[in-house]
Simulated assay, not measured.
Amino acid sequence: MEYAGLGGLVVLALNIWAIVSIIGSGAGTGSKVLWVLLVLVLPIVGFIIWLLAGPRSSRAAA
């Protein structure tokens, strides 16, 4: 089994989840664009930063 491919798939899934959550958040458009760019350009680091400080979806806040 190739673990690098599996790890990449996990990172991809987490980044998709982060982007969907960012888009569904109540943050302003400019803020959303910057967060999505951060997650896309720095997949692992950007995800961790979003997890700690990023905007949450409106469902998560309720």
Rank of each mutant, 00 (worst) to 15 (best):
G54K: 03
Y3N: 11
M1Q: 11
A27S: 12
S25L: 06
A53L: 14
G28C: 04
S25H: 04
I19G: 04
G7P: 06
I16E: 14
L51T: 11
V33S: 14
W35Y: 13
Y3G: 06
G46W: 01
A62Q: 04
R59K: 13
G7D: 15
L9W: 09
L51M: 08
W17Q: 13
L6Q: 15
V11Q: 08
V41E: 06
G46C: 13
W50D: 00
S31D: 14
S21W: 00
W50Y: 12
G28D: 12
V41R: 05
I16C: 13
A13W: 05
W17V: 10
G8F: 08
L38Q: 05
W50M: 04
V39N: 01
L34S: 13
L37E: 00
A13D: 05
I23A: 14
S31N: 14
L38R: 13
G7F: 12
L40C: 15
G28H: 10
S31F: 07
G24I: 00
L37H: 04
V33N: 11
G24L: 06
L14S: 10
V39D: 06
V41F: 12
S57V: 03
V36S: 04
V45A: 15
A61R: 11
S58M: 01
G7S: 15
V36A: 01
A53K: 09
I48G: 10
G28F: 08
M1L: 11
A60Y: 03
A61I: 09
Y3H: 12
V11K: 11
G26T: 09
V45E: 01
L52D: 13
I49Q: 01
L14E: 10
G28E: 06
A60P: 02
A60Q: 10
M1T: 12
A62C: 01
T29I: 10
G8P: 02
L12M: 12
V36E: 03
